[in-house]
């Protein structure tokens, strides 16, 4: 592990208490970051993605292939892909074509032109041995708030994309933003009404995410997680559901592949756990990143397998 913070800070909180951690058990899910290039420029993007951005570079099929094999050897159950917008990566379809021969796949997408323009190619992937699911970002169940963040017209485009994906028979879920003090069940009901009016299954899974802040941001007042917090406030089952327990993410930066602890910490090189999955899975993950608190406090998870 590139130890870019002092060991004492890595292992203990600012008041000297043992920091909470997760000791990974086994690799069930492998994520690939496809790159921070995106067709949208959302000011709240937790990845800081936008057109032409290369903080995280496009991953190529030749770089993915050996990791798929290594993951299979470690017993992986599924592969997932996030960005940026994965469908702006020129290798995305060839990567999916390969990965869907091996395991089920999930792609997180904004459901706009990069995907809409390739629905004919996407439809071909329905013939693969394993299924492809798509999680589409629909931040709010109303046009005004969604378009305020993503741009005028994007709400309608994304709904159009969802309708088409459903017609083509893909498994769908929605990623939405979670506001502070929101009435979660009421928000979900608004989504169900929206789904019904657009001929989408009303039982479509909705995954809510809190504000993760932009990359490199250090929001004030985020509590630190101690070992005591992990054992006092969480059960063993809840600790098992931390993504860093069963999942890792592959990231390409500066031309090199790194295995990160989870999908939310790629802005901190301390969470680059090595270049192979095996060595990454052996590393204890200290819950030091401010986004770790989201997992701790509200069970946030990018995964759909737990």
């Amino acid at each position: 592990m590139p130890m870019l913070v002092p060991m004492s800070e890595w292992l203990t909180t600012s008041d000297g208490k043992p920091r909470g951690y997760i000791q990974p058990v086994g690799l069930e899910e492998l994520w690939f970051h496809t790159g921070t290039n995106c067709n949208l420029r959302c000011p709240f993007c937790l990845e800081g993605s936008k057109p032409g951005n290369n903080r995280i570079e496009f991953i190529r099929l030749s770089e993915v292939k050996p990791l798929l094999v290594e993951a299979l050897n470690l017993g992986v159950k599924s592969f997932s892909f996030t960005g940026g917008e994965p469908f702006v990566n020129p290798d995305m379809f060839s990567i999916l074509d390969h990965a869907l021969d091996l395991r089920s796949c999930l792609v997180l997408t904004n459901g706009t032109e990069p995907l809409l323009n390739r629905l004919a190619r996407l439809e071909e992937l329905r013939q693969k041995p394993f299924p492809l699911s798509l999680r589409v970002s629909l931040d709010y169940p109303d046009r005004e708030r969604h378009d305020a963040g993503r741009g005028s017209g994007s709400f309608r485009t994304t709904l159009r994309c969802l309708e088409r994906l459903h017609q083509l028979g893909f498994n769908l879920s929605i990623a939405r933003l979670m506001a502070r003090n929101e009435d979660g069940p009421a928000v979900d009901r608004a989504y169900r009404d929206l789904f019904a009016s657009h001929h989408l299954p009303i039982e479509t899974r909705i995954v809510a995410f809190p504000d993760f802040h932009t990359p490199g941001e250090h929001p004030d007042g985020v509590p630190e997680i101690t070992e005591n917090c992990m054992t006092t406030y969480l059960t063993a089952a809840q600790r098992d559901r931390f993504m860093c327990n069963f999942s890792k993410m592959v990231v390409k930066q500066d031309g090199r592949i790194g295995i990160y602890a989870c999908t939310l910490v790629d802005d901190d090189p301390a969470y680059n756990l090595g270049s192979t999955l095996r060595e990454a899975m052996e590393k204890r993950v200290m819950l030091r990143h401010h986004r770790c608190f989201s997992c701790f406090s509200c069970g946030a998870s990018c995964s759909e397998i737990h």
Partner: peptide, 25 residues
């Protein structure tokens, strides 16, 4: 959006429509 809706309503399959638009806040 308007053109896509019209074309689909007049029988053009959505897989034959290819769009380029950037959305900005």
């Amino acid at each position: 959006d308007d053109a896509s809706s019209w074309l689909e309503a007049h029988g053009v399959p959505f897989t034959h429509l290819h769009r380029e638009v950037f959305f900005y806040a």
